[in-house]
Design a protein around this nucleic acid. Structure first.
Lengths: 206, 206
DNA sequence: GAAAAAGTCGACACCGCGTCGACTCCGCAC
DNA sequence: GTGCGGAGTCGACGCGGTGTCGACTTTTTC
């Protein structure tokens, strides 16, 4: 059943504070333990309401996460524009784009990691992730195609496959990292190699 | 009748069969739905015992998965030897190694994906994954170091960081793929680029 | 053939989720 | 001020899944 945005009715009110308190509590708890270990009781307690009152504000624990995620959508792709819209191996633009992403992962790592882990079993989260990924892959694939046509980049895997791999690599690397920001330079090197790194196979005997 | 078949000291006891039946059922169910949707009831039913009898054999659903995983440990790294122990960009060895991995993912994708998803919240699974990853990263890092020393590969990220990225990329790519085997050739290209793909930044004006 | 070990099961307590209906609180209209 | 309605709150309930316990039956062993 497509969950209608039920729960909260219309009108400005004081309960808005409670809603915010739940969100804040969730953010806070997520910085300390994985999503699966967080119970609705805790979320409710953090907002100083009873467990059943929680349902007045959100349909479920996952709905809270989705709300949190939604607030992040913009930031995830902010600062990626110059790199994605440019051409050729512009290491600096890529570095700036990745540095912004790394900051986000530093601050919201648990939320992001929890969302990624929960995605396979939660359609709304999966949709959020898919939309973001889709958007990134598409722009990056377009860039790859452009670069190949202009002779900046060698042929290789289909552009969207390569773009998807790069997106996967980012998520996996950041999710596994304890210090995302330390990864930026290496990621720059590796991504540029994936896109532009041609090389000749050396047969020792020829 | 005579319980111990003549000649054979100990046949497979009734319990051994049950244990195997549980494992088989788990494998079977996992090929049809994600781990989180599988209940102990189903596992027990598949082995034709009651739910509480299940606990005679395994401590929990995750323990079954761990057992299944254990049986897979060998296969995951089988066929990777020639590539990992070789030197230089030997595309064919890499391709064979990845093809074997792809077959495994095709057959056991749900199990592997479920394990990866459950790992953050389940120490035994996390340990299994970490051990496998560790082993692969270590051998691959050694290969990278060797190749760099011999001048086959350019410098770049620390060998173990690069190796970890390659491992991450594989997991992410296979986990996301609907057809792992179609990914092999692209993965070969991309991994070789990550390791050997040097390139010069083209400044159009120089 | 009796004791021990292996295996089986129903009943139970527990936990977390989501629902329901009754209640309180508060602003507003008259 | 009365009183009405919606926002907000909560206790109690039912559900489904987990894990444990103790009593029971079957198989093995000596």
């Amino acid at each position: 059943m497509s969950p209608a945005p039920a729960g909260r009715r219309r009108g400005p009110s004081k309960g808005d504070l409670r809603e915010k308190a739940i969100l804040d509590t969730a953010r806070d708890l997520l910085s300390r333990k994985p999503l699966a270990d967080i119970t609705i009781d805790e979320l409710a307690a953090g907002a100083e309401i009873s467990r059943s009152s929680f349902y007045f504000y959100f349909d479920s624990k996952l709905a809270v996460v989705v709300a949190l995620l939604h607030g992040l959508s913009g930031e995830v792709s902010r600062d990626a524009g110059p790199w994605l819209d440019g051409t050729g191996p512009d290491a600096e633009a890529l570095r700036r784009s990745l540095a912004a992403l790394a900051t986000l992962w530093r601050d919201q790592g648990r939320l992001l990691a929890g969302a990624l882990a929960a995605a396979p079993g939660c359609p709304p989260i999966a949709r959020w992730r898919a939309a973001l990924r889709e958007a990134h892959v598409e722009r990056l694939a377009a860039r790859i195609t452009r670069d190949r046509a202009a002779g900046h980049a060698p042929d290789g895997p289909a552009a969207h496959v390569l773009a998807a791999m790069i997106d996967d690599l980012r998520s996996a690397a950041f999710a596994a990292a304890t210090d995302p920001e330390a990864l930026v330079d290496d990621l720059v090197t590796v991504e540029l190699r994936m896109m532009y790194g041609n090389f000749r196979v050396h047969h020792p005997d020829e």
